[in-house]
Amino acid sequence: MLRCAVLDDYQDVALGLADWSRVRAESFREHFSRQDDLVAAIHDCEIVVAMRERTPFPAELFDRLPHLRLLVTTGMRNASIDLAAAREHGVTVCGTGSVSTPPVELTWALILGLARHLVPESAAMRAGGPWQHTIGTDLHGRTLGLVGLGKIGSRVAEVGRAFGMDVVAWSANLTEERAAACGARLAPDLDALLTGSDVVSVHLVLSERTRGLIGARELALMKPTAHLINTARAAIVDQDALASALRARRIAGAGLDVFDLEPLPEGHEFRTLPNVLATPHLGYVTELNYRTYFREAVEDIDAFIDGTPIRVLS
C-alpha cells in the first residue's frame, strides 16, 4: 500500500473523517517548522495531504522527497506550493472543494467581538472585575468598507446590510454593476474607502498586485475610531505598519485571523496588544469544511491510484 502523510492535523481528526483504507495513512498533529524535521517525517511517503498553506512546498523540498508522487492540498488554491517544481519532479498536485461560509461567519465574529469588547468584558466577569467597563460601538448606520467583493466579501456585505450598515466596496476590477448586485456602493478608489469606513474588512486573493496593498500610508487614512479586519491573507496588509498603527492607537483596533508566520510565535505583539482580537487562522476550520477537505482528499487519492487523477491544479 502507498504511504500517505496528512500534515498539520492540529485537532487529530483527519483519519476519522474519511475512509483512508486504500493507503497506509498517518497524520501529524505537530507543525514541522523546520524543513529537516518535515523531511525526516515524510521522506518515504508517496502521498502527502497538506492542510491549506500551513506547510510550504518550495522547489528545494521536492528535491528532498524522491518518493513523493501525489500532493493533495485542501482547497483549489495554494500559494505555498511551487507547482512548476512539482511538475519537474513528476508530482501530481490535486485540490479539494472548500466551503465559503465559515470565513464569512468568522469575519462577523471578529467585527462583533471588537465592536462590543466581548473578550475584555468576558475576562473581567471571569476574574470578578468591574461590571460593565466598556462602551460598545454601534454598527447600525455605520459604514462597512469591503476590500474585495468576491464569494466571501459579497456574503459579508449581506450581513452588513442586515445590521443596517452602509456597505461600500472596492477592488481593482470591481464595477458599479457588480457592487450594486451585491448591495454595495462602489468606492471611487481604495483611499476613499479607507477614509470613509468605520469597519474595513479585507477579502482579496493574495497576489503580487495585492501584496502590501494596505501599508502605513493607507492605514493613516483610516478613522481613529475604525477597525480593520483581515481573514484573507496577512501579506495584503503590511504587518509592521499595522502593528505600529495599533500600538500608537492610530486606529481603534484590528481583528486578525491570518499572520505572516503561523503558528504566531510566542511573545508576538499581535498576541498581546489590547486592541487586537486575534484568532489562530480559524476562518476555514469548521466541521463542514473539514469533512469536505478530507473526503475529497481521499477521492483524489483513489482517483490517482486508479490512474485517472481529478481536480489537478495547473
Rank of each mutant, 00 (worst) to 15 (best):
V205E: 13
K151P: 13
N78V: 11
G150L: 02
A216S: 05
V276Q: 01
R178N: 14
S98N: 12
R54T: 03
L256M: 06
V312C: 07
E26I: 14
R249N: 12
L7Y: 07
L70K: 03
T175D: 12
N78A: 10
T55A: 11
S197K: 00
D9A: 04
E30H: 08
C94Q: 05
G141Y: 03
A109Q: 09
A115D: 12
A85I: 07
A169W: 00
I47W: 13
Q11S: 10
L213D: 13
F62Y: 05
A25S: 11
L2D: 15
E266N: 13
E269D: 06
E105F: 10
V285P: 12
T231Y: 04
C4K: 01
F259N: 11
L65W: 05
R211W: 02
L264K: 09
I229D: 05
S171T: 04
E262D: 03
L256I: 06
T225C: 01
R291N: 01
D198T: 00
R126L: 07
D257I: 02
I251Y: 00
V72D: 14
T107A: 06
D44A: 04
A79T: 11
H281E: 05
L61R: 09
R209T: 14
R311F: 10
C94P: 13
D138M: 10
A278K: 01
A86T: 04
G128F: 08
A235K: 09
A248V: 13
D189Q: 07
P188W: 15
Q132F: 08
T175F: 06
F294V: 09
T101I: 12
I152Q: 10
W131P: 11
D82L: 10
L17G: 00
E266G: 15
E105P: 08
G145C: 00
V104Q: 14
I310A: 08
D63L: 02
A50V: 15
H268R: 01
S154K: 01
P309N: 03
N173R: 14
P130K: 13
A25H: 11
A86I: 04
P56V: 03
M76Y: 06
F270D: 07
Q11V: 11
A297L: 07
Y284Q: 13
G90T: 00
V6H: 00
N289L: 08
C182H: 05
A41I: 09
V205H: 13
A220Q: 07
Q35Y: 12
S314M: 15
S207A: 08
D37T: 08
E53N: 08
Y293Q: 02
F294S: 10
R29E: 13
L190T: 04
L106N: 03
D63V: 03
A235P: 08
L194Y: 02
T292V: 12
P265M: 00
G16T: 14
G97K: 08
